[in-house]
Amino acid sequence: MKSRIILFCLAFLVWVLLTWPVDPQHLAVGIFVCGLAAFITGDMFVKRPHAFKQASRYLWFLYYTPLFIWECIKANIDVAYRVIHPDLPIKPGIIKIKTKLKSDTALTFLANSITLTPGTMSVDIDEDEGILYIHWINVQDQDIRKATEIIAGKFERILARIFE
């Protein structure tokens, strides 16, 4: 039940922002549609509703956002440099890294963060053993432990505090 209420609130927030400025007609339709969606799919959305109450998770998320944007900008300059360089300095390969994160949301965010940060893109994930296969445009180290430290080290600790 709690999961449904959380989903309803989030969906309704997105609906209100989409139909800005606020108008009673839109609100009525929104309540109906969000209620239907929350009723049908609500029990799949959140597995642990109590996690939404802990304030420290939001603070860590606020810390994570600027870090992520900075890495994202660095990634872009890196790719742009490789693309316009006449010799095309790439050394691609698929390596694997091992992560300690367990929950679905945390793994999704880790994979997304890896994709948007310099030179790396997640290809597949082995949930049982916590192994991610990463395509790296400039392979620096094929060893699983060192690669984990280089690629996921920064994000893993913060994401563990937000989602685990």
Binding site: I73, A75, N76, V79, I90, P92, L116, M121, H135, I137
Partner: peptide
Amino acid sequence: LGLLRLPDVYNRLQAATKCVTLG
């Protein structure tokens, strides 16, 4: 430009996702 210049599908996806997303 990366889509055109880079050699295979994985490298091209790198350029396509990163640059196009932030752009």
